Amino acid sequence: MGERQTVALLPGADHAERRRTGHRPLAASFSVAQDPQVVCDVRIVSARLNDKAHDAGVRLLSDTRTASLFETRWTTRVKLQSGDRLDL
C-alpha cells in the first residue's frame, strides 16, 4: 500500500472573487505536483470539512505528465468561508 498524504485547503485570495458588496466564495480548487518517477497515480479517497466527513464533489480537471513532472488539477463543490478547513 502506498503512502497517503493530506492536503488542507484554507480560504484565501485564490478562493474568493471580489465584488462591490464584498467577497463571494468560489469553489475550492487545487493542484498536486509530484515526481513521476516516485508517484504513478493520485486519487482523492475522502474529504473532511471542518473535521466532519463531507461529500466535497472532488473532480479531476486535468493531468499533465512529463519526464520530470506529474501534475493533477482538481476542483470541488465546496465554497470555503473564513475559518473553514477542507482536508482531502
Rank of each mutant, 00 (worst) to 15 (best):
K79C: 15
R59A: 13
V78L: 08
R59L: 13
S62A: 14
F30V: 04
V78P: 06
Q37A: 13
N50E: 11
Q5R: 14
D84G: 10
L26T: 04
R73E: 09
D63N: 15
H23W: 13
V42D: 02
A16F: 13
R18C: 07
Q81W: 07
G12M: 01
R18H: 08
A16T: 04
W74K: 08
R24I: 15
M1S: 11
R24V: 12
Q34Y: 04
Q5L: 12
E17Y: 07
T75K: 01
L49W: 13
D84A: 02
S82G: 10
V7P: 00
S82Y: 03
T66F: 00
G2Q: 04
P36W: 10
D35V: 02
Q34T: 11
P25G: 08
D35E: 06
S46W: 00
A53P: 09
R18G: 03
V32C: 12
C40H: 11
P25Y: 03
I44D: 12
E17M: 12
D51M: 10
D14V: 08
D51N: 14
R18N: 10
R24G: 05
E3Y: 03
K52W: 11
R48D: 08
L86Q: 05
P25E: 05
V38Q: 09
D55M: 01
L26M: 11
A56E: 08
T21C: 00
H15Y: 10
V58R: 10
L88N: 01
V32M: 04
H54D: 12
T66K: 05
L10C: 03
S31K: 02
V7E: 03
T76K: 14
F30D: 05
E3C: 04
T75I: 09
S82N: 05
R19D: 12
S29I: 09
R77Y: 05
P36I: 10
L9V: 01
F30I: 07
R18K: 07
S29Q: 03
L80Y: 08
T21W: 01
A67K: 14
E3V: 02
R73C: 13
H23P: 13
R19Q: 13
T6R: 10
V38C: 05
D14T: 05
T66L: 04
S82W: 03
D87H: 01
Q34E: 09
M1L: 12
L86F: 02
L49H: 09
S29E: 07
R4N: 07
V7I: 15
R85E: 04
G2P: 01
R65K: 14
D14N: 11
T76G: 07
L26R: 09
T75R: 02
F30G: 00
I44G: 11
K79P: 04
A27P: 04
K79S: 12
Q34R: 09
R48A: 13
F70H: 01
L61K: 15
A67Y: 11
L49I: 15
Q37I: 03
R73T: 15
P11Y: 11
V32K: 00
S62N: 13
S46R: 10
R59G: 11
T76H: 14
D55A: 15
R59Y: 08
